[in-house]
Simulated assay, not measured.
Amino acid sequence: MAELLVVAAAAAYGAAAGPLTARPAFRLSVPEDAPRADRCPGGHPLPGWLGPGRCRPCGGTAYGPSGRLLALLTAAVCAGLAAGAGPRPELVVWLLLTPALVLLAAVDRSVHRLPDAVTLPLAAAAPALLGLAALLPEAAGSWPGALLGGAVLGVAYFVLFLINPRGMGFGDVKLAVTCGTALGWYGWGVVLWGTFAAFVLAAAYGWGLVLLGRARRTSALPFGPFMVFGTLAALTAGGLAV
């Protein structure tokens, strides 16, 4: 019963947090050298950063990614993570990281870039939060393993970036540090599965677009969303396995 309550609470949290990423996703979904969006499509100033993608002066007109989709997606992810981790300290870390990761996936899908304004704070927050979680006796992971996972996956993606900078952006390298830190908490098997899942999901999506005639084999694809959801899926499985 307690575990069901944890899952339900996590889903409710995700449903509430997801729509709040719509406005920052819109503001950050700009070309790399362009200033962040500070007005809605109708020209009205945006009221701060966090919030739903709706403009009151425009009569509630929506902008940016769908708030409902973000709510459903974030709620489903948070519920899955809660089912995997259960009422353990690391679940709080996963729930805090998830909205930011979903935000990155939305931005990368829109403009094929992962902004430093989110990737760099995440790369610092993940090890710090897991370090706090590791101090509690109920924690089921390894903080040194998390630190090593972040370092190794960051270096691995950096090598891929050097080999093929057109296929792997430097934003992916920065995101890999966060993903590797989270995955490393549960061990090297989870690091490998999370990384493998990202490439499999990306390949399946890319070939699906090719078969539908919506892309070519050489078309650029945003890799961030696959890193995010491969990581979250592996964390769910990792939590169930410990």
Rank of each mutant, 00 (worst) to 15 (best):
T98R: 00
A17L: 12
S110R: 15
V190N: 01
Y13I: 03
A126E: 04
A215Y: 12
S219H: 09
F26H: 07
A128S: 03
L69E: 09
L232T: 05
A85M: 00
R68K: 12
A151Q: 13
D116Q: 07
F26L: 05
L221I: 14
A215G: 13
R88A: 08
D38K: 12
W185N: 02
R56M: 09
G42E: 10
T236W: 14
L73D: 08
A15R: 05
G59R: 04
P222G: 09
G67F: 03
C40E: 07
G167L: 06
L5W: 11
R39Q: 14
L97A: 08
A220P: 09
A16P: 02
G60D: 08
G51Y: 14
A198R: 00
A25W: 06
Y205M: 12
P127Y: 00
P41C: 01
S110A: 15
P52G: 15
M227P: 02
L132H: 05
A71S: 07
A176P: 08
L114W: 03
V210Q: 11
R216L: 10
L153W: 03
G213M: 09
L153Y: 02
G150F: 00
Y205C: 14
G213P: 07
L135D: 04
L129H: 08
L122K: 08
Y186I: 07
P115N: 13
D172N: 08
L5T: 06
V7G: 03
G171Y: 07
A106R: 14
G84L: 02
L221F: 15
P19G: 05
P31M: 10
F170A: 02
A12H: 05
S29Q: 02
V102Q: 03
T181I: 11
S110D: 13
G187H: 09
W49G: 06
L122V: 11
P165D: 01
V30I: 13
A220K: 07
L122S: 11
A34V: 15
V111F: 07
E3Y: 05
L148I: 09
S219W: 08
A233G: 15
A79K: 04
V152D: 15
A37P: 07
V107C: 03
P222Y: 06
L162H: 01
L101H: 11
A9K: 01
V228T: 12
F196C: 11
A151H: 13
G167Q: 11
P87T: 04
P47Q: 00
Y13G: 04
P222F: 08
A220Y: 06
D172S: 08
G189T: 03
G59F: 03
L130C: 01
A76N: 00
R27L: 12
L101A: 12
